[in-house]
Amino acid sequence: MKAKIHVYLKPGVLDPQGAAVAGALHNMGYDEVVEARQGKLIELDLTGEDAEKARARVEEMCAKLLSNPVIESYSIELE
């Protein structure tokens, strides 16, 4: 089983890297870009077949290591 974890900055947290990306896109003429936010994608390859159990374990991993709740939120996709 694979877990894809998207970690992104919470709304309201300044994202200077995202702002630089948006600035570069504007310089390239992509004026339709209003804002860019840069996050992370973490892929885990997991043993086991039980999706419910896997999700609970991955939630725990996110809370304990993969995200910092002060500044980040996350979402989990299992496949």
Binding site: V13, L14, P16, Q17, A20, N68, V70, I71
Partner: peptide
Amino acid sequence: LPGALMRNAGL
């Protein structure tokens, strides 16, 4: 300690 340290605003 409370809070977090993020990338410098000037990058």
